[in-house]
Design a protein around this nucleic acid. Structure first.
Lengths: 267, 267
DNA sequence: GTAATAGTGTCTATGAGACAATATCCG
DNA sequence: CGGATATTGTCTCATAGACACTATTAC
């Protein structure tokens, strides 16, 4: 806050959503195809400008989320990722965007939003690898969002948000494997998850599968913070990220896991 | 990003800085006393509006930092904390503020900034406890910043940023103790820090102290990410924070340590 | 039976935490 | 020397990871 009497310049404020889900054991992100310039025809994150001066930022994000998904917005969580406001990131002028991260269980095909020619799920690795062209700085926002999800999987019960109301321990393992991009030992994972009291709780009957022994079914427990954390192996960070996801380090306080993967770090 | 042809509302964009340092083994935050309304005479974070439409957000933050401290800005690190943009947080209108976290070694008394009647260091616990009145939502911003620092201490070499160019292992321990608000065993801390290769490296001669055996001197090493992390004990999180720092939970994915202590989380 | 997945038991290496013991300064 | 702090050593317990083994289904 400054007290300068002179009138400061104004900016346009937008929200962008990184909505992640699992489809066929792979991490996907929801993208829309832009219907107008700039970047007409290019894939982009769902987002919108603030509708009016009194609209809260998270309120705008929540509204956008409900437009893009058919889910009950009240059950979904939104977490602020950060601000992306480089001058020149949007040719229309000074647009500052607040990015949010949302995790969704397997969804039906998304309903096309008002301003979206098409909305659909895209594998995260295709996005990160540069296989797909993205509008604005949205590739970086997605990379930051995925890294945030990776970290949160270690320390919070976020993984259950990828699953439906009930799930098996194997389901949960697939979440970790997809987001972290590695394989885990099912037996150690099983014990680890079970031992973390309150993480998951039994939910009735066993679920039969086409083959093999039916698995017990669980639902998310009251515990939201994993203590001790479910540490991801070193490979899960260094290996995959350095080649694809992370741009050259800009700040010494970021590296392995994106402990400081928050946008806007500067030296 | 939305494609609506209609003109969206604009907001004023500001940056606010949470600058932390250690003084007499206690965590302090830099505050200025506001010279004009609103909140004239109240303590607040140093901050400013964007100077012109082409100014980058981090550039603005860096500029504000150099105004408030005499330090070489190039050596300091700025990390984005989040966006604080609730309607009504600023009586002057729709002001959205991007908060940054900076860690500083022991500084000389700060130079009064242009718009500050006075600038000075204040113990963090007095701020968090509500002992001191703060302008706007700055108490929450500070709480978020401190929590971020606590987490980063676990996973990154951030602690060295609190120290001068060289320091002893005991110096480093005091950083952890002050930020985490607990006491650590010097012997275990010593080994732990030494074992983490690249965290700190010897820097020449031993430093003599008034009493006791002189300690070896180190400087920050190349390693910026601690792997495995320097886990803080459970008491360091739950105990202190629940009473003072954290408001009632708003999101199930936050609790112990502020894994998700990023602002703006909503259900 | 076999195939396949779920779940349990066990061993080992490593790290955390407690804490005794030693080293090196000042006076 | 005694007081104080630094540094090293050692012991114990808990956990992670590897992996053999048993259980329960479908066919």
């Amino acid at each position: 806050m400054t007290d300068d009497p002179w009138v400061p310049p104004v900016v346009l404020l937008a929200v962008d959503l990184v909505i992640l889900t699992l489809r066929e054991s792979r991490l996907h992100v929801l993208l829309i195809e832009r219907g107008v310039d700039p970047y007409k025809g290019t894939l982009a994150l769902p987002g919108r400008f603030l509708q009016h001066s009194g609209e809260g930022i998270t309120a705008a994000a929540r509204r956008e989320l409900s437009e893009e998904t058919d889910l009950d917005v009240a059950t979904l969580r939104l977490e602020q990722l950060g601000v992306y406001g480089d001058p020149g990131r949007d040719p229309r002028g000074r647009v500052v965007s607040v990015a949010y991260l949302a995790i969704a269980p397997r969804l039906p095909e998304p309903s096309a939003g008002t301003d979206a020619a098409a909305a659909g799920w895209h594998p995260s690795d295709r996005v990160l690898s540069g296989d797909l062209a993205l509008a604005f700085d949205h590739r970086r926002i997605i990379a930051d969002g995925i890294e945030r999800a990776r970290v949160k999987l270690e320390h919070s019960a976020l993984a259950t948000a990828f699953c439906g109301p009930t799930f098996t321990i194997t389901d949960l393992q697939r979440v970790y494997e997809a987001v972290w991009g590695i394989e885990l030992d099912p037996r150690n994972f099983y014990r680890k998850v079970q031992k973390t009291e309150g993480f998951i709780v039994p939910a009735g009957t066993a679920r039969k599968s086409a083959t093999g022994r039916p698995a017990r079914v669980f639902r998310a427990g009251p515990r939201t913070v994993l203590h001790p954390p479910l540490v991801r192996p070193a490979e899960a960070s260094s290996a995959k990220e350095q080649e694809s996801e992370q741009p050259p380090d800009r700040d010494p306080h970021r590296t392995r896991s994106g402990v400081s993967s928050h946008p806007g770090e500067v030296g």
